[in-house]
Amino acid sequence: MRQSFTLIELLIVIAIIAILAGMLLPALNKARDKAQAIKCLANNKQVGSAIVQYTADYEDWLPTGKFEGNSGMWKYQLAPYVGMGGLATRGDVIKDKRFGVGSVFSCPKFSGVGSKFASEFKTYPGQTGGLGWNDNVSGNFSAANPTTTTQIKISKFKRQISETALVGDTVDDSQWTYTEYGHYCILHNIRDANDATNRRNERVCRRHSDGLNIAWADGHASWISQAEISQGKNGNYGWYYTINH
């Protein structure tokens, strides 16, 4: 005679499965977060290597964050060094999703740009992927107005290049504006000492165990705690963001 589960037995089995799933979920989430952090750091390392090759080919000149004030120039300049050349202009780069989410210029833990910038993100999918350029260092090249050009040679640094952040966890356009919507992290324009507190307290920036993955000017990439990079060094809150003491 065939026997079947009673309703109570079935509910007990479902409860046991739910308990086991609940016990497994934190471990799975932890493993996923670790994998994302590793991938983000690997992307920074690849970008850092590309920067070193670029400066070697261009007589010590660093890439620039923007061209004529428009973002994405650094991606265009580094594209050939990460196997993504062939695009004619910076404008082509920011329209190409290969340079956005999921690319070497991205961080897997990037949560997006929010509803306010959704249409811009759709039009320019290559503009934002979770990694951005530090506009305080080699921020802009302007052929139309050379006086606004801030392109710089790496040999002009007045501190160790290993302590100067070039690329890291941030969006790559309107970095200050994005703070209002909770989707930017670091590398925004430094305006005053209060920024150190703002960066330290910025909740969404803490993507990787309360820290950030950074590609430094010497080409290496590493994790640094949110508190440390916000506090700066030797009494200078902008120590890791600028080229001067």
Rank of each mutant, 00 (worst) to 15 (best):
R2E: 14
R2D: 14
Q3G: 15
S4F: 13
I8M: 11
L10P: 03
L11P: 04
V13L: 11
I14F: 12
A18Y: 03
G22A: 08
L24F: 08
L24Y: 04
L24T: 10
P26F: 05
P26T: 07
L28C: 13
N29E: 14
K30G: 14
A31G: 04
R32I: 05
A35R: 04
Q36T: 00
I38C: 00
K39T: 09
L41K: 03
K45Y: 01
Q46P: 03
V47Y: 05
S49H: 12
V52N: 12
V52D: 08
A56Y: 07
D60M: 09
P63N: 10
T64H: 00
K66A: 12
F67T: 11
N70P: 01
S71Y: 04
G72R: 00
M73Q: 14
W74T: 05
Y76E: 07
Y76V: 09
L78A: 14
A79R: 04
P80S: 13
Y81F: 13
V82D: 09
T89A: 06
T89Q: 06
T89V: 07
V93H: 02
V93A: 07
K95W: 03
K95C: 09
R98D: 13
F99M: 07
S103Q: 08
C107M: 06
K109D: 11
S111T: 13
S111L: 10
A118E: 12
S119E: 15
S119N: 14
K122E: 13
P125T: 05
Q127S: 15
G132W: 03
N134V: 06
V137P: 01
V137M: 02
S138T: 10
G139K: 00
G139I: 03
N140S: 10
T147P: 00
T147K: 13
Q151D: 09
K153L: 08
K153W: 06
I154R: 08
I154F: 03
S155E: 09
R159L: 02
I161F: 03
S162F: 03
T164W: 01
G168I: 01
D172W: 01
S174V: 00
W176E: 15
Y178I: 04
Y178E: 08
Y178F: 13
T179Y: 14
Y181V: 14
Y181A: 10
H183C: 14
I186G: 11
L187K: 04
A193D: 14
A193K: 11
D195P: 06
D195G: 07
N198R: 11
R199G: 06
R199L: 12
R200H: 09
V204N: 14
R206G: 15
H208P: 05
H208G: 02
S209E: 10
G211Y: 02
I214N: 02
W216H: 01
A217F: 00
G219S: 09
S222L: 00
W223R: 01
S225P: 07
S225N: 06
Q226V: 10
A227S: 15
A227C: 08
A227P: 05
E228G: 05
E228H: 07
I229D: 04
Q231A: 15
G232T: 12
N234H: 13
N234S: 15
N236P: 04
W239A: 06
W239M: 07
Y240D: 07
Y241S: 07
T242D: 10
